[in-house]
Design a protein around this nucleic acid. Sequence first.
DNA 1: CTCATATTGTGATTTTAACTCACAGCCCGT
DNA 2: ACGGGCTGTGAGTTAAAATCACAATATGAG
Lengths: 294, 294
Amino acid sequence: MSTYPPLNALRIFEAAARLESFSAAANELHVTHGAVSKQIKQLEEWLDVPLFERASGRVKLTETGWRYLVQIQDGLDLIANATSQLLQPDRQRRLSINSTPTLAMFWLLPRLAGFREQYPDIDLHLVTSDRDISRLEAPFDIAIRRGPGDWPGHIAKPFMKEWELPLCSPALLAANPIHSAADLARHTLLYADTRPTAWQRWFTLAGVPDLKPASSLHFDRFSLALQAAIDGVGVVLGPLPMARQAIDSGKLLAPLAAPVVPVRDYCWIAPRAALDDGAIHAFCQWLEQQAAVV
Amino acid sequence: MSTYPPLNALRIFEAAARLESFSAAANELHVTHGAVSKQIKQLEEWLDVPLFERASGRVKLTETGWRYLVQIQDGLDLIANATSQLLQPDRQRRLSINSTPTLAMFWLLPRLAGFREQYPDIDLHLVTSDRDISRLEAPFDIAIRRGPGDWPGHIAKPFMKEWELPLCSPALLAANPIHSAADLARHTLLYADTRPTAWQRWFTLAGVPDLKPASSLHFDRFSLALQAAIDGVGVVLGPLPMARQAIDSGKLLAPLAAPVVPVRDYCWIAPRAALDDGAIHAFCQWLEQQAAVV
DNA sequence: CTCATATTGTGATTTTAACTCACAGCCCGT
DNA sequence: ACGGGCTGTGAGTTAAAATCACAATATGAG
């Protein structure tokens, strides 16, 4: 719940500030200069700060007024843009895809050009989130999450497996070789808040449950941790096949082949009622085909 | 100059949509339900689309209404935040850095190894968000946002400028050359929800205000749009110097040198009380040094 | 089945905000 | 000095917002 200033006055303030002239604003807004003068005065009284300095029949924004302008201008632009988009809707079909960030960044994005070529009439809106789909606020046409899951009212299908291995950049490996799990103690390990126990699980399976790294970096999402590994910052417990492209292109190496920690399969999830939709059907098929290629 | 919907009606629409109830909105706004009903109806007639479905004395947002809500809500939030900041001025040896995703992914991450070498005793927790810092749930030691901003209780300093140019991958440019702004009509343009008006602003400055792309892809965050451009999906309006590394390494090209759209400077923001903290001071100094190198 | 409650819809009326009009004051250029 | 351009403001007019009272519909309890 928010408190708004008098919005009509705000609209008029934006024009007057942009044009640095009450009479110009009056012309633009098709009102009298007196109306502009009064609205500005009303807004200043409501906010209890001067927004303009007045001198010799001229106005100049105060520092406060200028800062306020920059911020509310963005807000007003968003409103204007949303409104004009609604008044002139696109003709193309637009699918809203809600994917986990890691899959989006490292697996889905590199393949999207292919989808574009195959389906030039389908626009995509890609949103990334780790939230359970029942807690998403925005509607989606297709969501991608790890399964198995309880998604009532939806159809879901696994289309890709995932597993984890330590990954680091070739430069880092050359500077500080890794031949065994114990060698990781000399490295910076990269952690993601979304997978807090991943490294500990790997240590346990690798037989070094008490291993302490030289240092650590923490990220709020995994895609940042993986990118940090590519940038040579440290060692990440990397998901495959997501990181396959980075490995194939030489950006990342897997110095230790074992243990391979399996993680749950990725599923596409679509509202049951929407499965007659050709575009949704096409995207799901395409997902399966892309994963089968791996 | 923008055309706005009836702003008072918009304010009431936001509350009714959020609460999914006209009478609840009436309570919140301290007006009668009849006023809410009429304002919604006025807005629907102004826009010429139904924003709500009415059934059995209940309302439910239409898909169109939902889309509109999400967009104008951000606009209204910006206005509310700007206003509340104007009305009233606002703590580990692990530094929590809260950065915008684009800066984090494309500028900060590639440099973090350098910070690690220089300050091996400082762990970092990198969180990315586009939210205004007053709306962050997690505390931070240093935030990075575009200024100028009103960050009460904080010290802020601009450390890097940003500007925008169209960017695309070499492969895409070879397949479909871009010699002028008008050539963009044959391309897929990449949009980010966080910068909804960026392309339109660029079109206006480039003298093609009515340009319509062949197709478009939308992402909820800019880092995905930029990565999509690197992956050859389409043309992005890319921020410099963030994309400098991608350009220098040949992953992205800037086919059009003008117009260069300036964007607000990046500032580091730290709580005033924390500036005696050597680690925070060190990170801020380091940021400035890194930006000066550009 | 009836009744009470909750919800949105709407015409007539009232209240409030927005705007106009006309005059005022100030500055600058000719 | 005069004209033009600009912002300020009180009184009055107009338009928008809101209230009020009644209406319609659905749901749940008795």
